[in-house]
Design a protein around this nucleic acid. Structure first.
Lengths: 272, 272
DNA sequence: TTATGTTCTTCTCATAGCGAGATTTACTCA
DNA sequence: TGAGTAAATCTCGCTATGAGAAGAACATAA
């Protein structure tokens, strides 16, 4: 057996300039989701230059590596803030959830060079339009239904001509992660304001899952899971609804996991 | 508002040598888990040089970026194969499950330079000792119980002096992912050989979850979940057990998700 | 060979959770 | 004032679960 040179690679870098090594760029892309007009929307930016000029893409950019080195979540927050003007932590609406989604490093995903992208997933309550107040940024919340993300288009990059690079795949993975997260975590409250009603929470589930839920059973489940929501004692003022009594107000509880979980009704197809 | 220069970064790279940009190195680290002697074990290598000389570390190495560019899963498979001599896909034991765990890019996680590591998680049936037959590789399967991974030590890098870099944190995340995956996927069968018994499968769950399960209820659940296991019709020959009848043999079914799921008994602490 | 202990496998039973639907109540709108 | 809508609560049958028990098959030691 010949000695394995891989073990010495780290020591290599202590003596050699890393610029001499393989040049790999690291970027951060953000799948930022929110509920607008009862539908699930994603924050997209329009590309102005080749490649994929004129197409939508996820907001993202390069990680500051050495000069002003930043952690990966900080890079995601910075990209999100630069695009929307709302900081995720401690901003006007500081209830933004951010988690790592996955890393995409297929050679050829960027036609110009080797780019490895760390994708993040963000859940936000309704935020202002990014273009309003900043005419220099060509960004918008786009309903995911309008993107035509069929399963076939998501799996084969290039089949859909709506999103640049492999961002259709990243968005698809983000949507599936979001759908799964709502099942066993209370993160649906991250899409709501500080105080919300059970029907509003149900609207979040219906928008993300894309199917209607049984109102009675949903109400029973939400209130029976310990720590999911806690009552504020108040009642919603009559909003622009179409009738019915005023629903009660709740805020997010202290649970980190839902037990028992809220399972999607139509998971039968995904099992096999 | 001033125009945002970030949007032009990709076009920047089309014209400028990427070596002039921030030098960030990309590595893959693998958390390879298996069951040995009834306990959960992880594949570790011992470092020979500074920093962290003499300490255990996860197997890993640099991603081939431009010359012989490889995808991230391929890099993980290559690292695993170089360390164990068993290829994950189509090897002697080709039933290795591999999935991406997460990406760790904290500045300062490597004291020499900026290194971003994409971690992968692997489930393997019992594999031969990596040191047997290859005296040049200082690697071994180490029981995770012997590493003293307390919750406090996992969260604060440097508290535990057993694993190099932030590998204690990565391993901790991998263990939690493995424990969760066994709840709602049939991946416990990836720890077993082609044919296995229900008690063997239960031993996998008990080793990963670290708690004993009710044998009768486990047996009922496994057989009632559609597609989890399918009978081979055979019966185990009398192994080195301590009595009892010969258990029946099964193989992995075609389910991709367990419905209903197999939930851990003691999740009560983690809920809040 | 016999006795004892172990473990696989299949039960029972009480309780909890769930899907589907009905009912009551409170509100909006014409 | 009447019709329509939706929140909130309830019933009912079915399924899933946890705990325990029991029988059968096997190993080991006396």
């Amino acid at each position: 057996m010949t000695p394995d040179p891989r073990r010495d690679e780290r020591e290599f870098l202590a003596n050699y300039d890393p610029r001499d090594y393989d040049p790999v760029a690291v970027t951060v892309d953000v799948v930022a989701l929110t509920i607008r007009d009862g539908g699930l929307s994603v924050l997209l930016v329009r590309r102005g230059n080749a490649p994929y000029a004129g197409m939508w893409a996820l907001p993202g950019g390069f990680v500051r590596g050495v000069r002003d080195a930043e952690d990966l979540p900080d890079a995601a927050v910075r990209e999100l803030a630069e695009e929307t003007g709302v900081s995720a932590k401690g901003g006007v609406l500081g209830r933004v959830h951010l988690e790592q989604l996955g890393t995409y490093g297929d050679p050829g995903r960027d036609p110009r060079m080797r780019v490895i992208s760390v994708a993040y997933l963000a859940f936000a309550p309704e935020l202002p339009d990014p273009e309003a107040g900043s005419d220099a940024v060509d960004a918008a919340w786009v309903p995911v239904d309008a993107l035509g993300l069929t399963e076939a288009a998501e799996q084969r990059p290039g089949t859909t001509r709506r999103l640049a690079f492999d961002h259709a795949r990243i968005l698809s993975d983000g949507l599936e992660r979001a759908r799964a997260k709502l099942e066993y975590t209370p993160l649906a409250t991250a899409f709501c304001a500080g105080e919300f009603t059970v029907p509003e929470l149900r609207a979040v589930y219906e928008a993300v899952w894309g199917e209607e839920l049984h109102a009675g059973n949903f109400h029973r489940k939400v209130l029976s899971v310990p720590g999911f929501v806690e009552s504020t004692g108040g009642t919603s003022d009559k909003g622009g609804r179409r009738g019915g009594p005023r629903p009660k107000l709740y805020r997010a509880g202290d649970a980190r996991l839902l037990h028992p979980a809220l399972l999607r009704p139509s998971r039968e197809e995904e099992i096999r």
